[in-house]
C-alpha cells in the first residue's frame, strides 16, 4: 500500500510541477518547479527499483544542470511585455507542435490499449531477470557489451568540449586582459612590495 501511495504522490507531483514549469510567470520559479519535477521523477525511478538511475538523475540534472540553468536565469532581466508580443507571433507554431504532441499521445495510448510490448532479447526469448545490482548490470553493458559505442560517444563529447573551448578561448597579451600569473604573485616578498620611510616633521613622502 505504501508503494501505491508513494507512486501516486510522486506521479501527481511530477505532473503538477511540470505544469507549473510552463505556467509560472517568473522564470526562476519555472526552474525551481523543474527541479521539483526532476526530484519526483527520481522518486519514481526508485519505486521501480532503478536506484542507480535515480541517483544519477539527481546528481547530474538537479545537482549540476539545473544549478547552471538557475545561475543563468537568475541574472536575466526579462521584459514580460516583449515576451507576450512574441506569443502572438509564435502562436501558429505553438499550435502545430501541440497538435503533433496530441497525435503522439493518442497514438501511444492506442498502442498501449492493444497490449504491452514484450521486452525481450532479439531472438525472441523474454528478457532474463538478472541476480545483479543495477550498477553491475549497467557497468557490464556499458564497459563490456557496448564498449565501442560508449567510447565513441565519449570521444564525440570530448571533441565537442575541446571545440567549445577553442572557439571561446582568446589568446592575447596576458597583462592587457588582466590575467594574473599566480606563480609570480606567490613569489612576491614583503621586501619588494613595501618600503620604510622616515619623513621629517611637516614634510611629505616621495613615492
Amino acid at each position: 500500500m505504501i508503494q501505491t501511495i508513494a507512486f501516486y504522490l510522486f506521479a501527481v507531483l511530477v505532473i503538477a510541477s511540470a505544469v507549473m514549469v510552463i505556467m509560472s510567470r517568473n522564470p526562476v520559479h519555472s526552474v525551481l518547479w523543474l527541479i521539483l519535477a526532476f526530484f519526483n521523477a527520481a522518486g519514481l525511478m526508485v519505486l521501480v527499483g532503478a536506484e542507480f538511475i535515480a541517483m544519477l538523475l539527481v546528481i547530474v540534472y538537479v545537482g549540476a544542470v539545473a544549478v547552471l540553468f538557475l545561475f543563468v536565469v537568475m541574472m536575466l532581466d526579462i521584459d514580460f511585455a516583449e515576451l507576450r508580443a512574441g506569443f502572438i507571433k509564435n502562436f501558429p507554431l505553438g499550435i502545430a507542435i501541440a497538435a503533433i504532441l496530441l497525435a503522439e499521445l493518442v497514438l501511444g495510448i492506442g498502442a498501449y490499449r492493444v497490449g504491452a510490448i514484450e521486452l525481450g532479447t532479439p531472438d525472441g526469448a523474454s528478457a532474463p531477470l538478472l541476480d545483479r545490482s543495477n550498477i553491475e548490470s549497467i557497468g557490464a553493458l556499458l564497459y563490456r557489451d557496448y564498449i565501442f559505442l560508449f567510447e565513441a560517444a565519449g570521444i564525440i563529447l570530448l571533441v565537442a568540449m575541446v571545440g567549445a573551448i577553442v572557439l571561446t578561448h582568446r589568446k592575447g597579451p596576458a597583462d592587457a586582459r588582466g590575467q594574473q600569473d599566480i606563480g609570480k604573485q606567490n613569489r612576491r616578498r614583503p621586501e619588494e612590495a613595501t618600503v620604510m620611510k622616515q619623513p621629517g616633521i611637516g614634510k611629505g613622502v616621495d613615492l
Binding site: 536506484e51 542507480f52 541517483m55 544519477l56 539527481v58 546528481i59 538537479v62 545537482g63 549540476a64 544549478v67 545490482s133 543495477n134 550498477i135
Partner: peptide, 15 residues
C-alpha cells in the same frame, strides 16, 4: 546499495 551516490546527490542539493 548506492549510499555513496545518495550522499553525493544530497550534498549537490545543498547549493
Amino acid at each position: 546499495n548506492v549510499g555513496l551516490l545518495y550522499i553525493l546527490a544530497i550534498s549537490s542539493l545543498s547549493v
